[in-house]
Design a binder for these strands. Structure first.
Length: 887
RNA sequence: GGGAGCAUAGCUCAGCUGGUUCAGAGCAUCUGCCUUACAAGCAGAGGGUCCGCGGUUCGAACCCGUGUGCUCCCA
């Protein structure tokens, strides 16, 4: 078959995807093998895959494919997350474009739109996962709002409520005025901003004096219920028992004293607004101050503000500042660096707000989750980086606010009567029954109404490793028993608290078993300049376009090759480009080896140059060497993957294939012009190639499967993606060393040609070795062919036969090149003299070391032997150089 | 403010319990080659005060202290 000049990924990838799926290779069922379970971190249902996902999915696919090829029953569960705030925001925006206001819709009508939206866009993410080559079990696709999943979330809520681990209460929480919902602490992102500090005069009641207060939120003045100063502050001692007048609303409020106040900040006097600041709230509680809520849910001023009612908080701030200025109460404004909290999803400035919400008590859940990691039962990679973070968070964990004032999500299973009595139950029927038990029969016409709010998305995500196997709703089912706990979780470090810690909590609480044994945190994907990828910067590449341009294998390669464990990854298109070139290298190696298939046939029927010793022996050392080199690399790669150093493993494979296999081995066994190839050498070459493809397959599944099939006729079902790895053996170090020597030998020869400006087509008459460097005679044929030498012989440098032989030091010996020309030695002489100085210096330092009594006393015997070896090697080298320089 | 991590070639990073030839790779750069698998290639080369300072040690990129710079997490 005629093969193209370049590898063409597009058709190949679609073909193999279809083939793998048709053969159900990635559909897993419980059997006698050990399971290897991975659950995908579910992306947002209506999102698209970004480079961060691409990195995660690729890492998972590498691990899963390797497991599948290593005798394990690999099961990778795909799925998506309903992402309540993010999705609801997008649906609301879509409705707005259509001219529909969410608030004009019933809950049911809104959910209908939301599910339509999910059905339209929800499959995009799955298509992308498929395009990337992820070997997921599509039969197990899960969604956090599936019926059973919904029930699981409700069941867990009821369970935790009954265990007294969930409670309802009024607390100061983070409020997102744009999404009009409560947020958990983790959903707030802090950013450094330049704020303005306004200095405002508050009149002291009954005097003509003022106290000046610095505030960055003048629009909350109307909610002030006190002014606080430090009792140690001499400036304000005289205010004990005094009242001050809040400007604009003329409310009289007390001056309180508390050492919480920082004397040096602003004027040392703080206005206390318990409704709109967490610290003020705590101060207010302590000093019994009233709470006046001057903001509405949407961030506009409420009637309690008395003035500017209905105006947005930021607009109101400007107006209030103007009003204060008009009244002569604004002393000055100064800029200062501060931090503001933003909603992770809507990016609105978060408002502290007192609100009645549902909370999970975290302390009892945190303890076992912490224990799992501390004890090493769950291993975090890279450990040094994230262990401390994990530990700190769990030791200082606060209660989790789980109610959200949204419709898209699992509705809180709580039913209320008209008097705010409530019961928690799995459904309305059960709720009525429980209610009647607790509060007596319902009166005629009396109805229970369900809580309007839904649960935080993460309150469903934390069940993911369990409920994808129906582990909450049907805990005794065979799948759950077989697949749980999972092997490894691969995810971004940004969701260590949102998700990873909570999954461990859920596993321990609901099954008393960890959800996975290893957690591998990938870094953040940034652009070439180290900036975060974002829509506004336009630096986030479109995954499908990248795949179209370079192929999925190349994209996987590109993102893995530059992705050190746990470090941020600077994505650059040079990566996929290198991957594409690698595809092409493999493709061309295939073309070469396939050409030999035909030539081998020629040799079987009668070689063109019978008895050519060169062909026979050339193959020998090359095969022996590569066999050992392959085992060495396999050992290294296996070790690296066990340590989750996946990009290192890929680098090793890359260089094994490109350098060792293509540049050395294939050249060494390549038959001369129109010569035949020994069938056994050909067979070995094919089997090496196969094994390389197999080891590369988890990283670059498509190109390897394609070449595997083009290399040889395959029986039906002989597909690389399910081919089981063979044993990994120990390499023979002597053969490896001989290979190193040979490669260096060839490099020295090529360097010689370059220096002498000899064309490759000009033969070297004779290569002369001063001593038997190689124990395997077959290398001389390789040397002859690779250096285009007519003969290889032995001889030593001496006065007479030096004519026309150019001597070069080689390790502790010499190699001579006979070209028939008088070589130009001036350049070499300079170089060698430099080298000589260097080696003599090195020898001197070794001598010093070896004659140092303390060294001889303290150093380990192996180290001393080593230094002695270095010394003798160096002495040999010096002698070799001196010999070449002589005469 | 508290904590964690990082600083090695132009860039991105390896470098194990301190000693394996006075630091390695990939990319980039330079030079020479269209050599019959591959110019998306081949062959070769150059490039580093291992962030500064101090200490421990016979010996430090590696251990300790300190300074500087950067990143992340938590308040």
């Amino acid at each position: 078959m005629e093969l193209n000049k370049h590898y063409d990924p597009a058709s190949v990838e679609n073909k193999w995807s279809a083939h793998w799926n048709a053969n159900h290779y990635f559909n897993s069922f419980p059997d006698h093998r050990k399971p290897y379970t991975v659950v995908i971190p579910p992306p947002n249902v209506t999102g698209v895959l970004h480079m961060g996902h691409t990195l995660n999915e690729t890492v998972q696919d590498i691990l899963v494919r390797r497991a599948r090829m290593s005798g394990l029953n690999a099961c990778w569960v795909p799925g998506s997350d309903h992402a309540s705030i993010a999705t609801e925001a997008r649906v609301v925006a879509m409705l707005k474009e259509k001219g529909i206001d969410k608030n004009s819709l019933s809950r049911e009508a809104f959910l209908k739109y939301a599910f339509e939206w999910k059905d339209t866009y929800g499959s995009i993410i799955y298509d992308q996962i498929a395009k990337l080559g992820c070997s997921v079990d599509w039969n197990r696709t899960s969604f956090t709002m599936d019926d059973h999943y919904y029930r699981a979330v409700i069941r867990v809520f009821v369970d935790l409520y009954r265990k007294n681990l969930i409670y309802r209460g009024a607390r100061m929480i983070h409020w997102d005025p744009s999404a009009r919902t409560a947020l958990s602490d983790e959903e707030v992102e802090y950013r450094d901003v330049e704020g303005i500090l306004y200095y405002v005069k508050y009149p002291i009641a009954g005097t003509s004096d003022f106290i000046t207060i610095a505030t960055q939120r003048p629009e909350t003045i109307m909610g002030d219920t006190g002014v606080c100063v430090n009792p140690e502050d001499p400036r304000y001692r005289h205010l004990k028992g005094k009242q001050v007048i809040v400007p604009l609303v003329n409310r009289s409020v007390p001056v309180i004293f508390d050492d919480y106040i920082d004397i040096s900040f602003g004027t040392g006097a703080l206005k206390v607004t318990p409704a709109h600041d967490i610290n003020d709230y705590n101060l207010g509680l302590k000093h019994g101050l009233p709470v006046i809520e001057t903001l509405n849910e949407d961030g506009s001023l409420s009637p309690a503000a008395e003035i500017l009612v209905g105006m947005d908080r930021f607009e109101a701030r400007k107006r209030i500042v103007e009003m204060l200025r008009e009244e002569g109460l604004l002393v000055k404004e100064e800029t200062y660096a501060t931090r503001l909290g933003y909603s992770q999803r809507s990016h609105a400035v978060v408002e502290p707000r007192i609100s009645t919400q549902w909370f999970v008590k975290m302390k009892p859940l945190a303890a076992p989750a912490l224990e799992q990691v501390i004890s090493g039962n769950i291993r975090i990679h890279p450990g040094d980086k994230f262990l401390a973070t994990y530990k700190y968070w769990l030791e200082n964990v606060k209660d989790w606010c789980i109610s959200r004032q949204l419709w898209w999500g699992q509705r809180i299973p709580t039913w209320y009567d008209g008097k705010k009595n409530f019961v928690v139950a799995e459904n309305e029927q059960a709720a009525i029954a429980t209610y009647q038990q607790e509060f007596g029969p319902l009166k005629a016409g009396e109805k229970l109404t369900q809580d309007e709010d839904v649960l935080d998305t993460w309150f469903s995500s934390w069940l993911w490793p369990m409920e994808v196997f129906h582990g909450i709703t049907d805990p005794d089912n065979a799948d759950f028993k077989y697949y749980y706990p999972g092997a490894v979780l691969v995810t971004g470090q940004d969701i260590i608290f949102f998700w990873v810690a909570r999954m461990i909590m859920a596993g321990m609480e609901f099954k008393n078993e960890k959800p996975f044994s290893d957690v591998y945190f990938t870094g953040m994907v940034r652009d070439k300049q180290g900036r975060k990828m974002s829509k506004s910067l336009g630096n986030s590449p479109d995954l499908l376009k990248l795949i179209e341009k370079y192929g999925a294998d190349a994209v996987r390669f590109g993102i893995m090759i530059s992705s050190p464990a746990g470090n941020d990854l600077l994505f650059d298109e040079a990566g996929p480009e290198q991957g594409r070139n690698f595809n092409n290298k493999l493709w061309n190696a295939l073309k070469l080896v396939n050409m030999w298939a035909a030539r081998q046939a020629v040799s079987e029927t009668g070689p063109e140059k019978p008895g050519s010793a060169a062909i026979d022996s050339t193959g020998h050392f090359a095969v022996q060497w590569f066999e050992n080199r392959l085992e060495q690399a396999k050992n290294d790669i296996q070790k690296l993957i066990a340590e989750f150093k996946i990009s290192e493993a890929l680098k090793n494979l890359y260089s094994l294939i490109w350098d060792d296999f293509c540049s050395w081995f294939l050249e060494w066994v390549k038959p001369g012009y129109e010569q035949a190839m020994l069938p056994e050498v050909y067979q070995k070459t094919v089997s090496f190639f196969e094994e390389l493809l197999q080891w590369l397959h988890p990283f670059m599944p498509f190109v390897t499967e394609e070449i595997y099939h083009l290399l040889k006729e395959r029986a039906a079902g002989d597909d690389l993606c399910i081919k089981q790895f063979g044993p990994v053996r120990e390499p023979d170090p002597q053969v490896l060393r001989a290979g190193d020597d040979l490669r260096l030998f060839l490099t020295v020869g090529r360097e010689f040609r370059q220096q002498q400006q000899m064309k490759n087509s000009e033969p070297i008459t004779r290569v002369v070795l001063a001593e038997e460097i190689f124990s395997n005679n077959s290398v001389y044929a390789i040397i002859r062919k690779q250096l285009n030498a007519e003969a290889v012989g032995f001889g030593t440098k001496s006065g007479e036969n030096d004519n026309g032989i150019h001597w070069i030091p080689f390790r502790g010996s010499q190699i001579g090149f006979e070209t028939g020309l008088q070589p130009d030695k001036t350049y070499q002489k300079q170089e060698l003299e430099k080298e000589l100085i260097h080696y003599r210096g090195f020898l001197e330092s070794l001598n010093k070391k070896l004659s140092n009594e303390k060294f001889m006393q303290h150093a380990k015997p192996e180290v001393i032997d080593l230094e002695k070896k270095k010394k003798s090697d160096t002495e040999e080298k010096i002698a070799a150089i001196e010999l070449v320089l002589k005469g």
